[in-house]
Design a protein around this nucleic acid. Structure first.
Length: 875
DNA sequence: CGGCCTGACC
């Protein structure tokens, strides 16, 4: 009972945002005058070394700043103090092969459309001329070879050919680049020159996203005996990383030992970069970093920038700040990339105010915020719901003359699209296209998601058509957005069509797409089908995450449409798997299994589309206990439940057939997280006094979440308590939520707005509000002329046309004899004049119906109950 | 070898 797995924390949600709106510019001015050099204060107060928490324990090997020159590694690889600018890394035998690596950087810059410079290139002017000719006359392989033959005698060595193939790569012409490469390699005698060509070819292909071709070149180079260099390995690692194959990158990296190769700085940077792109856990990347240090490598700016990128993926703002401090301690210059990546990590960690402070200190360090800095901050503010701050930064950006780029327009657009403010979204689109930036796939996806969430399916269809007409290729996000949007609207036919199109496009589904599918099944109560889809995705090598599991958990106890889609297509393929082993056949078999799965998904959609209301079928108690099994599975897979999981569990409890069942479920779940489920269980059992303190710290944690996550939690908890007769407890929770401003502007003297609340929360709140009005009456104060209760029917409704809340509240008021009636013009508004309500409140029996009680109480609660009754009446 | 934007759960 006492053992609580450490991974079960409610705070393990991805969204933890603060919510302290304030005028941006005032703050900025204030802070700048208050503190001339905020950075100094930071480094002196918060000097963090990599070896200290908050970093994971595996950082133990990272050197402490002061000890950098005295670590044991220095005996093997003499190190010069990192602050010496003249520091050069120790040379291995291979360094002499390719002195310097300027040309790589050169290509990289060119690739990003930077101005062309001639610095750092080693090609001759003949190469330049050859390039022109290749572009102009090298129409096909033969013509190209002829051009090259013409130049062959005048081109000097591999440098010229490297220039040629890189330039061709930059132009996206990888065919010609390959031709050049093959032409040059054939004629080159020296292995190290051939190796140079191969590395350049691999890195060029990697940059173009042609990872398969890069692999072919790499493997050919190995067999031919010139690919066995650190440079070729680094290039292929980077190529894999770019295309998201970080496991391949890591595998290649570790295989270098077997080839007798010692990774150098660039290799380590490439593999760390690949980890960042592939979403590898920071802890694991630190192991590589530690190894790098152990091998006497001096990490540079790029190393740290790549490590920061790993942190930014996971929102690990503490680790990111430690890394930044470590850079300062090691005397490594920080650049705009460092700052932007750090800011992204801090924003994603929800520390917007800290991010703002870091941004403010940039000018003092001579690094001026650029368009990326602003986009990062603006997106951070937007996700935290701080739209005024976001807008202020936009204005500041315009004021400073920083022109918006594709990404910043998309950031701005996504804010409006999410809010359903389509007029403004269209304005952004227009402004974007007026400045010569075409809508891209990100723009379209944001629009599709936005319109879809507002149920504007006609517009969704139109936008999707426009997108294709304009030759913007839909990507995985496009398809999963559409499938999700259509499924949520019950447009299964359309969802199915999109799914078919998605398969035709040859894209591979990911965890999000599967989760959207699974959720659609769950919402229809098809738990079994959902679970089999979960198995299927796991078989395909896609790891489910907490979101996937949250959908499944939420499905338990939901009334099902006709359960289970029969699987009739796949018997034969399973037999085949066992008897065949050749890889081609295996592939074909896998394909068959996948096809079978696709047809099943299509079938499920078909069934859902054909389904009318569906017979309600609640499988009851045993099904509830399946939740425990799911929890165990999550634990096994090391998937941390979060606050959304908790809310889903509470909602499932509300669907339990009996109090005993619900309490048993919570009791069992205490094994996983005693605080979280202990509070829920305790409140349900009526152990108020003992539990309330724990509940407070739970509420403190929930306070760190974004507002919709927090309100969903309060809604779920109060619903469950209300459902099982713990109405007083429900009310305490709901008032706590109100005190902590979980629901915006819930009540004033004249109006109670329940539109963001669940029915349990709303009903508990109605009681509290009426008691408050009663207090006003009895204190002899004036009651407002008109009192109204909004239940979210109409424009405030979360779900269009859903009147569940209104009916619940109406029935509650009716039962109490409260004189509220539906307003004629607005069905979701219940109104009464103040005087009528006042006289009802003065009636002798009214107080009794207003004060709530728990079905289950315990002796020790009496004192507590009295105190909080008093507190409540003072509200 | 580097940074910012779009999708799923309550």
């Amino acid at each position: 009972m006492a053992s609580t797995p450490p991974h079960c924390s409610i705070t393990a949600t991805t969204k933890r945002y603060q919510n302290h709106p304030y005028p941006h510019n005032q703050l900025k001015d204030h802070r700048q005058t208050q503190n001339q050099n905020p950075h100094q204060r930071w480094t002196s107060n918060q000097r963090v070394s990599l070896a200290k928490p908050p970093l994971p324990p595996s950082s133990r090997n990272a050197p402490k700043p002061a000890a950098a020159t005295t670590t044991t590694t220095t005996t093997q690889h003499p190190q010069i103090h990192p602050t010496f600018p003249s520091f050069q890394p120790p040379k291995s035998e291979l360094v002499s092969d390719f002195p310097g690596r300027r040309s790589t950087r050169f290509v990289s810059k060119l690739h990003f459309g930077r101005p062309r410079t001639t610095m750092g290139t080693r090609h001759t002017s003949v190469a330049q001329e050859a390039l022109q000719n290749v572009i102009e006359y090298g129409k096909d392989e033969r013509a190209l070879e002829n051009v090259l033959l013409n130049f062959e005698s005048r081109l000097s060595g591999s440098d010229d050919y490297v220039f040629l193939l890189r330039e061709l790569g930059n132009r996206g012409d990888c065919k010609k680049a390959i031709c050049c490469f093959e032409f040059a390699v054939k004629r080159e005698r020296k292995k190290n020159e051939q190796g140079k060509l191969a590395s350049a070819m691999i890195s060029t292909l990697g940059r173009l996203g042609k990872v398969e071709m890069a692999k072919t070149v790499f493997e050919a180079a190995l067999t031919e005996g010139y690919g066995n260099t650190v440079y070729a390995f680094s290039a292929i690692i980077s190529a894999y990383g770019r295309s998201g194959y970080c496991n391949e990158a890591i595998k290649i990296f570790y295989s270098m030992k077997d080839y007798g190769l010692k990774p150098n700085l660039v290799t380590y940077n490439a593999v760390i970069d690949a980890c960042g792109k592939g979403g590898v856990e920071f802890k694991r990347v630190l192991e590589i970093f530690d190894e790098m240090l152990r091998n006497g490598m001096q990490p540079d700016r790029i190393t740290f920038n790549s490590l920061l990128a790993v942190c930014s993926k996971g929102g690990l703002w503490e680790a990111a700040r430690s890394l930044s401090c470590e850079m300062v301690n090691r005397g490594i210059d920080q650049d705009i990339f460092t700052y932007n990546t750090l800011l992204d990590a801090v924003c994603k960690g929800g520390q917007l105010d800290m991010a703002f402070e870091i941004m403010s200190e940039m000018p003092a360090k001579n690094i001026l915020p650029n368009v990326v800095t602003y986009s990062t901050m603006i997106d951070g503010y937007a996700k935290a719901g701080r739209l005024d701050d976001a807008r202020n930064l936009f204005n500041e950006m315009k004021f400073l003359g920083i022109s918006l780029d594709r990404v910043s327009y998309n950031t701005l657009l996504s804010i409006y699209a999410k809010l359903g403010r389509f007029e403004e979204a269209m304005d952004v689109c227009r402004e974007m296209e007026n400045s010569g930036i075409r809508k891209d796939v990100v723009t379209y996806n944001a629009l599709l998601g936005g319109y879809g969430k507002q149920y504007k399916y006609d517009v969704v269809r139109k936008v999707f058509e426009e997108m294709k007409a304009r030759h913007v290729s839909p990507n995985l996000l496009t398809y999963s957005t559409l499938i999700d949007v259509y499924s949520k609207g019950g447009l299964y036919r359309e969802a199915m069509d999109v799914f078919r199109e998605f398969k035709k496009a040859g894209l591979k589904a990911d965890v999000v797409l599967y989760s959207a599918l699974i959720d659609a099944l769950c919402k229809n109560g098809l738990v079994e089908s959902a679970v089999s889809l979960l198995d299927e995705m796991t078989k395909e090598g896609i790891r489910p995450n907490v979101v996937t599991y949250n959908s499944i958990i939420d499905a338990f106890g939901r009334p099902a449409t006709t359960e289970s889609v029969v699987d009739d297509a796949g018997q034969t393929s399973e037999l085949q798997i066992e008897s065949l082993s050749s890889s081609a056949v295996e592939k074909a078999t896998k394909r068959l299994v996948a096809d079978r799965e696709d047809s099943r998904i299509i079938k499920i959609f078909g069934q859902l589309a054909a389904e009318k209301a569906g017979q309600a079928k609640n499988s009851g108690g045993q099904e509830m206990m399946c939740i425990l099994g799911v929890f165990h599975k999550m634990h096994e897979l090391e998937i941390k439940p979060n606050v959304v999981t908790f809310s889903a569990i509470l909602n499932a409890c509300s669907r339990c057939n009996s109090f005993e069942e619900a309490s048993m479920l919570l009791e069992e779940l205490r094994l996983f997280d005693n605080q979280v489920y202990g509070v829920a269980h305790g409140l349900l059992m009526g152990y108020r006094e003992n539990v309330w303190e724990q509940a407070q710290s739970l509420f403190d944690e929930v306070k760190l979440m974004d507002s919709s996550t927090a309100s969903a939690f309060y809604n779920a908890l109060t619903d469950m308590l209300w459902h099982f007769g713990q109405k007083r407890g429900a009310q305490l929770v709901v008032l706590e939520g109100k005190r902590r401003q979980v629901w915006e502007n819930v009540w004033s003297e004249s109006c109670l707005d329940l539109h963001l609340m669940s029915s349990g929360a709303a009903r508990a709140m109605v009681h509290a509000w009426l008691l408050n009005v009663r207090a006003i009456v009895f204190e002899g104060h004036e009651v407002p002329k008109l009192l109204s209760i909004l239940t979210g029917w109409g424009k405030h409704s979360k779900v269009v046309g859903d009147s569940t809340l209104r009916r619940a509240v109406e029935a509650l008021l009716m039962g109490m004899g409260a004189p509220f009636r539906s307003a004629k013009c607005n069905l979701g508004r219940l109104i009464s004049t103040g005087s009528v309500v006042a006289s009802w409140l003065r009636e002798s029996g009214t107080l009794k119906v207003l004060v709530l009680h728990d079905d289950r109480t315990h002796q020790e609660n009496l004192r507590f109950g009295q105190i909080s009754n008093l507190q409540m009446l003072q509200l």
